[in-house]
Design a protein around this nucleic acid. Sequence first.
DNA 1: AATGAGATCAACCGCGTGTTT
DNA 2: AAAACACGCGGTTGATCTCAT
Length: 252
Amino acid sequence: MGRQPCCDKIGLKRGPWTIEEDHKLMNFILNNGIHCWRNVPKLAGLLRCGKSCRLRWINYLRPDLKRGAFSENEEDQIIQLHACLGNRWSKIASHFPGRTDNEIKNHWNTRIKKRLKLLGLDPVTHKPIDVKENAEKKFQTIVESTSENLIESSTETEEKQSELELTSNKETTKVLQGYEMLWSGMDVEQWLNLDMNVSNISSPSSMSLESLNHSSGESSTQQEKPLQQWVDSVDSILLWDDFNHYQEEFFF
DNA sequence: AATGAGATCAACCGCGTGTTT
DNA sequence: AAAACACGCGGTTGATCTCAT
């Protein structure tokens, strides 16, 4: 026989987490660490499956999370990494301490994709979108709209097509120059070579109070009190906005 | 002020891989 | 060796928020 199942889904709570549930999970993990997600909900007194607890911890409750908007520099780095790694969000996230794969994935899908499209780049291939094809489409539209007005001469329409292609070629060159500038500013290869090291350092699923204390270089007894204060202070989501203050004081 | 569209993001789902029995 | 499972990952969904009309 194999392992026992992680959870039977009957009677388990789903949907958004309550503050009380967050408290329970945080208290449990900070006091006991994470050894087996399957046991976490049972031992923490939660009616959730282990998978859900893991996700909540990694994406929201982890003390080392960096919250707030992505900077333009971070976005540029994500774009570069995505060009090399594709949709391997966890790999990409490992280059951004305090950011989660889910966060980066969401940011990519909602903002960066649009930004790239505006730059005339395909978000999947990172190559310029075929502007000639676009020009032809535009041309087709013009032809269709002008076909109703047959008075216009065909030579005039051809001139329009040449004009469109010329314009789109200029746009492409501009975009490519910008993209080249972006890439030349960073040593991606060297960055990617650090991949393994970075991944080893930031392993959010295998942390404990003990490891947090060790990483800060202070004894656990010195840490316990403020840590508990921190846990107790999380009474609403809004309080997380002030988290950086606690982070500096307790963990790093 | 009401409403609809678009944007955002937390959470779920299903699958692949590695681990345990 | 094979079955059964946990874990982690990427894709997707849907609730909520924001903004324009």
